[in-house]
Amino acid sequence: MHALRQRQCMLHLRCQICGEETFGRSDERYLWLVAGSEPLQEGEESWSPPVHESCAAEAVRYCPHLRKSHVAALVDAPMFWGVAGLVYDPETLEPLPGEDDDGLTHVSFADPQLRWTVAARVIVTLHGCTPVALDDLVGAAV
């Protein structure tokens, strides 16, 4: 996902597929959809923005990563935690090796390394997670 679009979607809780607001569910929760096979856990970090049910179904149909395996959860409260980015050594000003497969390091807003980080993504922690089967959720919305 494009870095600017990711930040805008996270900061305003917009759908990562269509870019529209995800407010408006009758249960006042947000749908999170991520690639993987393990259910989303309480307090888990995520850089994926929320999605609408209809957009999630489309994403699973067309995205190779999600088609392979995905998990979904209804989330009560996404809490801003930090960023993923390139961290620079304050002594040498050289980039430090990243912790992720994509070379980025997760840095919380409270971490002193934040001032030496060039952010690429906003990260939230997910609270009040209820795993859901996307097929059931999309079927109920139709």
Rank of each mutant, 00 (worst) to 15 (best):
P78E: 00
C55G: 09
R29T: 15
T130K: 11
A59Y: 03
S108M: 06
L93Q: 14
V60S: 10
F23V: 10
L114R: 10
E42Q: 13
Y62W: 10
F109K: 02
T125H: 03
W81K: 07
L93W: 13
P78K: 00
R121D: 04
S37R: 14
M79P: 00
P90G: 06
D89H: 09
E99W: 02
L96A: 03
D111V: 06
P90L: 05
Y88P: 06
A56H: 07
C63A: 15
P49D: 07
S54Q: 13
A84S: 15
S26Y: 08
S48L: 09
I123S: 02
R115C: 12
L114C: 04
V34K: 14
A119D: 12
S26T: 13
G98Y: 07
L96D: 08
A35I: 09
C55A: 09
R61M: 11
P50W: 00
P90Y: 05
A56F: 08
R29Q: 15
D100K: 09
E94L: 12
H52L: 09
V87A: 13
L31F: 02
F109N: 03
A119C: 08
F23E: 13
V122Y: 00
V107Y: 10
C55W: 09
A110I: 07
R115G: 05
V83G: 06
V75G: 04
V83M: 06
S26E: 15
G98S: 10
R61A: 15
F109I: 07
Y30H: 14
C129Q: 00
A110H: 11
G82H: 04
C63M: 13
